[in-house]
Amino acid sequence: MTAMTAGTAAGSATGSTAVAVSLESVRKTYGDVRALDDVTWTFARGGFTAVMGPSGSGKSTFLHCASGLDRPTSGTVRVGGVDLGGLGEAKRTRMRRERIGFVFQSFNLVPSMDVEQNIALPLLLGGTEPDPARLAEVVGRVGLADRLRHRPAELSGGQQQRAAIARALITRPEVVFADEPTAALDPRTSRDVLRLLREAADATGQTIVLVTHDPMAASWADSVVFLSRGRIVDELASPTVAAVMSRWESL
């Protein structure tokens, strides 16, 4: 396979209003190791894209750079047209809190807070009280209305992940990055989590970028981007589990 640049499926949007996230000639190095190697790609607004690749392919580095959690060594990352490299740390933090949502494998809930407080945390950190109607909407969407006073330790793994998804959605972010959100869950709970992410893209037009090693999870996306040795080497539109597995095995 040969390295690809933006231009197909989820990476095809060219107008700035249609692009949620763009990476241009992005490189990330750690000493002599090049984790990302001249990556150029765009994610269309309202799209659901899975990112896959073998261990060490650069998936986590790709997510961290695309989301503003880390700075690339060189190249440009834009979210909603805003160049993250041009922002100071305080503005980058505010950007991540208000316009970018995160869902992680380890949930990252605050143990001392109840479910409602954990969901509202991005707003509270910004000095804003949650709108009751918005909170009720998000809580209802993830099915946790009867768990709002529970702390994370009192929830199942699936309930904790649904709380993490609600927290990612509460600010109406333009894009949600999900890093292996189903890896620690059983198949049924995984489907519930993936359905919530799918609905976020379909019902609200939010952009979802899902990093996963699971072909079943990837099949929920509109397209799958494959990484190998820090480069985007392939893309699969309208993925099925069988098609994802076939491409995966050829990397």
Rank of each mutant, 00 (worst) to 15 (best):
D186V: 06
A9H: 14
V233Q: 14
R147Q: 09
T182G: 08
R198F: 04
E129C: 03
A178F: 05
G58W: 00
G68D: 11
P72M: 04
T128G: 07
A217V: 11
Q105T: 13
R191T: 14
I170G: 04
A201L: 09
V233G: 14
V139N: 05
E89P: 03
P54S: 09
V115Q: 00
L197F: 14
R172A: 13
G53P: 05
A178Y: 07
G127Q: 09
I119G: 01
A163G: 05
V241S: 07
A217S: 13
R71P: 12
L251C: 07
D214K: 12
Q160G: 10
A237E: 06
S22R: 00
V244D: 11
L121A: 11
P72F: 04
E154H: 04
A90C: 02
S156K: 05
S246Y: 03
R34W: 10
S219C: 13
A153F: 01
L121P: 09
A10M: 06
A13Q: 08
L155S: 06
D222W: 06
A237W: 05
R97W: 10
Q206I: 07
A218I: 07
L196S: 07
T128V: 14
T76Q: 14
E24D: 15
M113C: 03
P122C: 03
T93V: 15
T212A: 09
S22F: 00
T42V: 10
A201N: 04
W41Q: 01
E154C: 06
V225F: 05
V225K: 10
V138E: 00
V103P: 08
D192T: 15
P181E: 07
T61A: 11
G158D: 07
G75M: 11
W248L: 15
L124Q: 13
G127S: 02
P152Q: 03
M216S: 09
P122V: 01
P215K: 00
